[in-house]
């Protein structure tokens, strides 16, 4: 049997519970970021992907039903629509992840370059299966589809960083390095992706279209 991680249906998402009791958790800065990003598009709905990144950061690295609800309310779209988007993309975490989320590319080039050996070595070192989190909450191990750095196979993505030329031998020292590092966490990845959307210091604005332009 192949591991469950290849079958999205085997990985059910938590159903929303008691949404009416949830409070909004976006900080003032996060709200300002969202409002800024929303001005880039003629309709607020288009900010759904960046808004989910903000939520993933504000809610500590994963999207709970409350986080999805907050995004829906702030964008003025339905909960169902937001849940549909959040469940479509693999990088939105619908369940909590470890402090470091290791995604091992096992696609074509990596698989013929020994990616499965790396998977097995990491499974042994961590004592978990693919798709699981270590009991101390330190690491989550997943299989990834092509990460597109095939020239440096095997590739492992942790947070916003690619670690390249990983072998069954050096992957153990990668774990040691990560254990001591405060970086490369899911929340930091989300933060990095949110900041990519906001305009930088040199931004003066040019010819952005307004909703009225669209008629």
């Amino acid at each position: 049997m192949a591991p469950n991680s290849i079958n999205p249906l085997a990985d059910p998402v938590a159903k929303p519970v008691a949404l009416e009791e949830s409070a909004f958790l976006f900080s003032e800065e996060a709200v300002a970021e969202l409002e800024e990003i929303a001005t880039h598009y003629p309709e607020r709905k288009a900010a759904c992907l960046p808004a989910l990144w903000i939520a993933q950061r504000e809610y500590g690295g994963s999207l709970t039903p409350a986080a999805l609800k907050e995004v829906a309310e702030r964008l003025g779209i339905s909960y169902t629509e937001v849940e549909g988007v959040a469940t479509f993309y693999t990088m939105y975490n619908l369940r909590p992840r470890g402090r470091h989320h290791l995604e091992i590319c096992t696609c074509l080039t990596c698989s013929v370059s020994g990616a499965y050996d790396v998977v097995h070595a990491l499974e042994h070192a961590m004592g978990i299966h693919l798709g699981e989190t270590t009991p101390d909450g330190e690491f989550t191990l997943s299989e990834a589809e092509c990460l597109n750095y095939c020239g440096a196979a095997t590739v492992v993505q942790v947070g916003d960083k690619y670690f390249t030329n990983i072998t069954p031998q050096n992957c153990i020292s990668l774990l040691d390095q990560l254990r001591e590092s405060p970086s490369y966490t899911p929340a930091m990845l989300a933060d990095s992706l949110v900041k990519l959307h906001t305009p930088g210091a040199g931004f003066k604005g040019g010819g952005s279209y307004t909703p009225e332009d669209l008629g």
Partner: peptide
């Protein structure tokens, strides 16, 4: 931005990040 190299043409460029698909 506004009025690129005095051409009278405005152009804004934004990054939009995907999420794994």
């Amino acid at each position: 931005g506004k009025n690129i190299l005095g051409s009278g043409h405005d152009f804004d460029l934004y990054i939009h990040m995907g999420a794994g698909s």
